[in-house]
């Protein structure tokens, strides 16, 4: 049973990979410009932030939690970067580093309250979502800058962080790969990663076997916060300005990447390779639809459907048996205990 389930995850990754190839072929047939490698690589700029956060939200979801505050942390770290660099006059790289640490602090707050005070992850990260974007708005408000224009005037070096290229490969692609490798090694190649899984599969069992699950849970939120901080800095560099509302619409794409990537929302199963593939699938889907002439505001329909159907497809006892149950539902009118 168990080995069967473990086998299922790579199979899902294969499906994602095939979807990706299918997307490239179909969108390329619609608009041949899609087959231009540079276009594809450059599109990483648009979703690298989502992907980076999704890698570590995968950790959180595997432990059985959820983190919806990532988008707000992006806005906060973007504003912190801008203010430290432009108003305090700090070196931009130190400012960026501090901003990432602020992201980590936000994650620490989430994690401590969830793991030690044992408040529901959804409630705390919802409060965090309001709080962190609120702090960002307050910072902008107190500084007297226009909310709409944000803080700009960054050095070309910093702008280059997200917009530059090495040997023709955009920095965003390199960043995507580097963070993916880090997340992969952490989750799949270290004892820490095994602990993350064990915490999600059965927290009590993990506790009894001597794992400090509270520390493990807290650490996943810190990682998620740090990654949101990195995403905030990257987005600031990519767009050349700091704004409090950066990342405000990231909640849905982040969770889509995690869930479509094959990570169970109930915890215990999943992986970052799936998340990475899923974020590229969604990113290319958006790009392809845009290049196919679909207006940006309609694309949510596709991603929303993708999210729901992928979860239905990946659900616990398998989609087939669910359809079967759906068709024979009248037999067990009282509901069934395996729910």
């Amino acid at each position: 049973m168990k080995s069967g389930m473990l086998k299922k995850i790579p199979k899902w990754n294969l499906i994602l990979l095939l979807t990706l190839v299918g997307e490239i072929i179909i969108f390329g047939l619609i608009n041949p410009r899609f087959w231009n490698l540079n276009v594809l690589l450059n599109s990483f700029n648009d979703f690298v932030g989502i992907a980076i956060i999704a890698f570590f939200v995968t950790f959180v979801v595997i432990t059985g939690g959820i983190d919806i505050s990532g988008g707000s942390i992006i806005g906060l770290t973007s504003v912190v970067t801008g203010m430290l660099a432009q108003f305090v006059g700090m070196n931009i790289w130190i400012a960026a580093l501090l901003a990432v640490l602020v992201g980590g602090l936000c994650g620490l707050l989430n994690g401590v309250l969830i793991a030690y005070a044992k408040v529901q992850a959804m409630v705390i990260t919802l409060g965090g979502m309001l709080l962190y974007s609120g702090i960002a708005i307050v910072l902008v408000g107190l500084s007297g800058t226009s909310t709409y224009e944000g803080i700009s005037g960054f050095s070309q070096e910093f702008i280059n962080l997200a917009n530059g290229k090495i040997l023709g490969i955009p920095h965003s692609v390199i960043l995507f790969l580097v963070i993916l490798v880090i997340a992969y090694i952490l989750l799949h190649r270290t004892r820490y990663g095994r602990y993350v899984y064990l915490t999600g599969i059965n927290q009590n069992a993990a506790d009894y076997s001597g794992i400090d699950t509270r520390k493990i849970i807290t650490s996943t939120y810190i990682l998620s916060g740090l990654s949101a901080g990195i995403a905030g800095v990257i987005l600031t560099s990519y767009l050349g300005s700091s704004r409090a509302d950066f990342g405000a619409e990231y909640l849905m794409p982040i969770l889509t990447a995690v869930v479509l990537g094959g990570t169970l929302i109930t915890g215990g199963k999943g992986g970052v390779i799936g998340t990475a593939l899923a974020s590229i699938v969604v990113g290319f889907l958006k790009l392809g639809l845009q290049m196919g002439g679909v207006q940006t505001q309609y694309i949510g329909l596709a991603t929303g459907l993708l999210l729901i159907t992928s979860v239905a497809f990946l659900g616990v006892p398998g989609f087939k048996s669910k359809v079967k149950r759906f068709l024979t539902i009248k037999k067990d009118r009282g509901g069934n205990l395996h729910a």
């Binding site: 959820i66 959804m122 909640l251 849905m252 969770l255 869930v259 929302i265 949510g300 329909l301 991603t303 929303g304 459907l305 999210l307 729901i308 979860v311």
Partner: peptide, 10 residues
């Protein structure tokens, strides 16, 4: 959570 999030978008 996922169902209604997707629904929101749709």
């Amino acid at each position: 959570f996922i169902m209604t999030l997707g629904m929101l978008e749709i």
